[in-house]
């Protein structure tokens, strides 16, 4: 048995949040999200929380659990090694109801850094004629940051976010670095103009809390510090080569043919 202390807030009834306690029979293997579902299904149907995939992919169930922002689905109840588990909504956002916070500032800031590939030739984007070549080493320069779930844990952990509404935040800065480090991308100047501002890169002072809480090892702190260096000293960017797509290749003699696909592509689709 574990006592769940859950912060409740109903905007239609309450003027401020309060805590409510539930008893959950915790077993080995239950995540905090499983416990919340137990409460919702058997104890109190009015409890609101957001969740979707239950496996650390969608980033919906970010909450403040026992003193750290974490994903409820990736936190094992027994791993907390305590009988009282406190679940609160993420700090530094607005609470909509109970454990549900409004993540729209996160998405708005994410959008501000243009998180997409801005190609050198716009024509190539609309009507691609060739393929980009990227080596595994070039891929690994940004791959780590591409695993971002947009769960918003890093903004809840960041001390600057605690007061500065305008700060663009670790998530967006990491994504700016991710696209700036992509050899297919030519939008460096545009993104640097967005992040090299009073409320951009320079509001980070390497507290490292974002890197500590990131459930995917994205490490926004690393991206931000590397980007500071690039913003100050500039960088030489490698450009991905464009090559003709491989077609009509005749395999060398002695190489066996690939087996027939077991699932046939349906006709008409394509």
């Amino acid at each position: 048995m574990a006592n769940f202390r859950i912060q409740r807030y109903d905007p239609e009834k309450d003027s401020r949040p309060y805590f409510q306690t539930y008893e959950v029979p915790v077993e080995q293997g239950m995540s905090i999200l499983d416990c919340l579902f137990y409460i919702k299904e058997r104890l109190d149907a009015t409890l609101s929380f957001r969740a979707s995939c239950r496996m650390g992919i969608c980033g919906s169930c970010a909450m403040y659990i026992n003193g750290l922002p974490r994903l409820a689905c990736e936190t094992q109840a027994t791993s907390l090694a305590t009988d009282t588990i406190e679940v609160r909504p993420l700090p530094n956002y607005e609470i909509i109801k109970d454990l549900v916070v409004d993540l729209s500032p996160l998405f708005e800031k994410h959008q501000r850094v243009r998180p997409w590939i801005i190609p050198y030739e716009l024509e190539e984007l609309d009507r691609p004629t060739k393929e980009y070549v990227q080596s595994p080493a070039e891929l690994e320069k940004y791959l780590q940051f591409a695993y971002c779930l947009k769960c918003g844990l890093c903004l809840a952990a960041c001390p600057t976010m605690a007061t500065d509404n305008e700060f663009i935040g670790p998530q967006a800065l990491a994504q700016a670095f991710r696209y700036n480090s992509d050899t297919r991308d030519g939008g460096d100047a545009e993104r640097i103009a967005v992040v090299d501002t009073l409320h951009g890169l320079w509001r980070c002072h390497m507290a490292g809390a974002c890197a500590e809480v990131c459930p995917k090892g994205v490490d926004p702190a690393l991206a931000i510090q590397l980007m500071k260096r690039e913003a100050v000293f500039g960088k030489k960017k490698e450009r991905a080569r464009l090559v003709d797509p491989r077609c009509g290749v005749t395999p060398l003699p002695g190489i066996p043919k690939a087996p027939e696909p077991t699932v046939k592509r349906s006709e008409g689709k394509r």
């Binding site: 807030y9 905007p11 239609e12 401020r16 949040p17 403040y64 026992n66 003193g67 750290l68 922002p69 909504p89 993420l90 700090p91 530094n92 956002y93 607005e94 609470i95 909509i96 916070v101 409004d102 952990a157 001390p159 976010m161 605690a162 007061t163 509404n165 002072h205 390497m206 507290a207 490292g208 809390a209 500590e212």
Partner: peptide
């Protein structure tokens, strides 16, 4: 619809959870 602002404020510079020492050094600095 009414919202509850959960921003930590200056208190959040000092303490916001069980983080490493670096986050406290941020405040001391």
């Amino acid at each position: 619809m009414r919202r509850y602002n959960n921003r930590l404020g200056i208190r959040g510079w000092i303490y916001a959870g069980n983080y490493g020492l670096e986050r406290y050094l941020y405040f001391l600095h």
